[in-house]
Design a protein around this nucleic acid. Structure first.
Lengths: 191, 191, 191, 191
DNA sequence: AATGAATGAGCATTCATTCAT
DNA sequence: GATGAATGAATGCTCATTCAT
């Protein structure tokens, strides 16, 4: 008797992420996913209850991973709040780079149901960012009238660059730019 | 002999926009679109070659409309470049508000094929924004190292608010915030 | 525009009855039914909501037809109650002969849900028989302590002959035998 | 080395009979049977070659058991032929009562292939009954032109009562009624 | 032009059976 | 012997598209 192989689950997830990032949900056949993962079609159903569950669990895992990384990086960071903002943006860009699929996966997954596990994770990410901004404001280092909206811009901007930005764009340079705009805007100050 | 009835075409387009904004592409049945438009299923094929063509032509028309409005508003505007930026953001938010479907329609439509008509329109919008920024820089009023990236942020931020922003959010207040962040960032400039 | 063709519905029903009588429900593929009926697979779903509905509507129609025939034949018959019993058995055997499939179709359909339309029809048949027996009893011509059980024997006996009886068995001779056993059993023997 | 455990085989058979009597063949999953029997799915295949074999062997065993009981009861009985008929019907009803599943199991099992082991057993039952009738005729106690058909009625009538008869129906009263109808029909009425 | 009946490719999911452990 | 993870054939149903009327 073989035991449920978590390694196999990972192979399936990886194959699925790849395919779901290439084509929208409904155009990905589970048969392909199985073939790409090197398993039988039925095996998918041992590890995931349905196509939907497979799909959404990928998104959830992706976000959960990102949130976890950011929390660790923020905890480790000793910098001021501008620095923390840069850490967040940089982390998000880096994540988007090493998981190029996730961006597309997220694209295809419409507006999250607030109650869905992955919708909750997305909200968690926004709240993490919002918290940092508020702390920065309290520390007198940042100024923002609607941090909850600004938090949304982070993901939106990173996503925009990843999706539509020039392909050659050096990721860290892009991250710098995003951080720069968020922190300083494009208006000339000091005048 | 009846001529292709442009009025009927519009009724179909309106019904389609409504439905495509409620559910993703693959979940909208042409039969529903026909029913909602009050025409027969076969009639759709007189005015649109296929489901895809119907869908993408909606997006194209939406963007074309937006670009046209913005060009007019910018031409009419006498303000400085900060003001022009505000005009653009405000126009985009207003458009998103009066065409709440478009946002979702755009969401569902993956990364545009650069060659597709609607991809071209989207690019046109970005270039319009980029041009204003560059002119602002030339005029010494704005500062931005990568205007082509910043241009992307506009749509991304407006979209983020529309999709995930607090429902009560007053649209023009949100537009102000977006403009504010773009123009001034959230860092205290100590100046 | 073609109108829903009731002729086509009948062709489908006929093909389905044939196939369902050859093999049990789950072994009949709708694709075969469609092919046998000379229509496309999707056409089945225009006339029947699902495989189940197709199946049960066949049974219902079969029973409804039988009940209707029997009622007519009884109304036309001038004979005494023994004669009426013979009319019923003869009608049932004749029906089973001209619809050899129905017997098997009914076989596959387990115990009828009392609430299902076809369960109701089956009950109607039993009640029709029971009523005749009770009238015969009231007329002093028949004697039976449990007409509601006897009514059940009719279908059971006809079915048994059709399913397991010798193939050469002349149908009307078999009907005679069934009637004979039943009447011998419940007829008063002048003692 | 363990020997094939006949106790385990029986547990599987019991679980299977229960489930096959609740739902038709194709709706019973072997996984359930295994679970209900408290064994692993693979174990079923040690004791039964396939789902079909499991199923038909249940039916065979049921009929074999019934035939064996009837033969014993007939051998023990000292009564006349009417009495023997009553013994048979009573035995069948009793059997159906204590094996309520078998009735349904038999229902689901289409017309027996005459060559299948269980088809042969069913035939054996019919022949047992037929033989008694013929002996009764020879003894001048019964009269029947087609004992081979009458034999079929036994099972049919018992089955009808079990499947469709009123639930409250006292089993032995029902048996009496069946015997009564049959005997009234084939008994000499002193004329 | 307009219609909706007809079509059939396409696909998620189930489940009997196998086989590595 | 016993197990249950793995497999993939099999099938009901949907829906974009066509076309007879």
């Amino acid at each position: 008797m073989r035991l449920p192989d978590q390694n196999k689950r990972r192979k399936i997830a990886e194959a699925a992420v790849r395919l779901f990032s290439e084509r929208p949900f409904e155009q990905v056949r589970l048969e392909e996913v199985a073939a790409a993962a090197g398993v039988g079609k039925g095996t998918l159903y041992i590890y995931f209850k349905s196509k939907d569950e497979l799909y959404y669990s990928l998104i959830y895992d992706g976000f959960a991973d990102l949130v976890k990384r950011l929390e660790e990086q923020l905890r480790a960071s000793q910098s001021d709040y501008s620095g923390k903002i840069r850490v967040i943006v940089s982390g998000m860009v880096e994540f988007a780079q090493s998981h190029p699929q996730m961006i597309d996966v997220m694209r295809a997954a419409g507006v999250p149901d607030a109650n869905s596990p992955w919708g909750a994770k997305l909200r968690e990410l926004a709240q993490l960012i919002e918290k940092v901004i508020r702390q920065g404001i309290a520390a007198g280092e940042l100024a923002d009238t609607k941090p909850e909206l600004t938090a949304l811009y982070f993901t939106a901007m990173v996503r925009a660059i990843m999706l539509h930005g020039p392909r050659e764009a050096d990721a860290q340079a892009a991250a710098q730019h995003v951080s720069g705009v968020i922190l300083g805007g494009i208006g000339k100050h000091g005048r």
